[in-house]
Amino acid sequence: MPLQDVTVSISVAYPAPRIGLGRPVIFTQKTGASSYEEYSTLDALKTDYIETTATYKKAAAIFAQPNRPDIVAVATYDASIGAALAEFYNRPWHFALIANDLEADQVAAAGFINDKDFKFVAVQVKDDAGREAVKDKKRTLVFDHNITDEHLDAATIGNLASLPVGSITWKFKGVVGITPRYLNDTEIAAIDTDNAIAYVVKAGKAQLSEGKLSNGEYIDVIHGQDWVKADMENEVQHALSQADKLPYDHRGINAIEAAATTTLQRGFSNGIIASTADGLPDFTITALDRNQVDPADRVNREYHGLSFEFGNAGAIHEARIKGSIRI
């Protein structure tokens, strides 16, 4: 019997919070058996990790943000961060951070998350070689910041990840406690080419230089995909568990379709799903009736007949404007 009764799969066609969907976990190397603890305040975390530790400093950058999450988790590992990621993958976190900023652990974590289709890892690097080591990885956020004892990765996750998914693009946003850098065109072009993110001054304002993952996909798009998956699984699971039973006919199928539609409508309200020209949500949903599904699925009480697609709302990151002067 599967532990999960409802599974949503989403494929992205080109071109074209739930609590926990912004929660961070800090993976920390520590001698002994691995562990996982959650902290709601920095003072509580301080009892286990003193102020001089990298774990405390990452957590302090998270808790300093105005949009900080309700909980910061810490997962420990002795030798293998990959083993710890596998052990604690199903805990209620969505963004992983790495306390020691060591390249070997960053590469291992990025490789692990690259093979998943849910959650993220954020790493902070100091130079071109650091960016190159984790380049082109799915679901990896790479922050280029070389100022000692400043944690742009933790500050950004702390300030942006727990905002309503779909409501923001990550580019242009500010964070607390991080020094913006004045980079020249060559420097910022190199960072952009590697799909990394710096904290820079543009138009007189401190802001994130981009909002992309290491493989070039936009953070808000993939985070929105995760939200739709999680929210729809919850809605359909609720429909299944709240009813005495859902008959395998139009009544049960309509209930599942209604639950899925609720998620898509909410996704539109949050800013994940685009609007049509007449202001309507840009999604379609299709539910096969009882006679259209495989009889074997009816025997096994499995319904595979629901499908949907939606237009991604995206965001505008650049503008090119022309003007003229009359003499």
Rank of each mutant, 00 (worst) to 15 (best):
K202C: 03
A190Q: 15
V228G: 00
V200I: 15
Q225E: 08
A239T: 09
V175W: 07
I178A: 05
N215F: 08
S214W: 03
D220Q: 09
I219H: 02
Y218N: 03
N184H: 04
E235V: 06
V228R: 00
A203P: 06
G216Q: 06
A230D: 04
D192Q: 14
E235Q: 14
R181F: 02
V201P: 03
Q207W: 12
D226M: 00
Q242C: 04
L183H: 09
V236A: 02
V200P: 10
V236T: 02
N234D: 09
D226A: 03
S209C: 04
K229I: 09
T193P: 03
V221A: 11
A198E: 07
E187N: 05
V200N: 10
A243C: 04
A243K: 12
I222W: 00
Q237H: 06
D231W: 02
P180E: 13
Q207H: 12
Q207G: 08
V236G: 01
G216Y: 08
Y182D: 15
G216T: 08
A243G: 04
D244S: 07
I178T: 13
K212R: 11
I222E: 02
Y182T: 15
E233I: 01
V236Y: 01
T186H: 03
N195Y: 12
L213V: 10
V176F: 14
V201M: 10
Q242D: 11
A206S: 14
H238D: 13
L240W: 04
D226C: 01
I197L: 10
I222F: 00
A239D: 06
L183S: 05
Y182E: 15
H223M: 02
Q207S: 12
K212E: 06
H223D: 05
D192E: 14
A206V: 07
E233L: 00
D231S: 07
L183M: 09
K205I: 14
A196F: 12
D220F: 02
E233D: 00
K229G: 00
A203D: 15
A239G: 09
N184F: 06
L240I: 08
Q242N: 12
E210V: 12
Y218W: 08
K212C: 04
G204Q: 14
A198G: 06
M232G: 00
K212I: 04
V228K: 01
Y218C: 00
Y218V: 05
T186E: 13
Q242H: 10
D220S: 07
Y199P: 08
D226V: 00
Q237E: 09
N234L: 09
V175F: 07
Y218S: 01
G211W: 09
P180T: 11
I219V: 11
T179C: 12
I219D: 02
G211S: 05
L240S: 01
A203F: 12
I188C: 09
Q237A: 06
W227F: 13
K202L: 10
A239I: 06
S214P: 01
G216F: 07
V200W: 10
W227M: 02
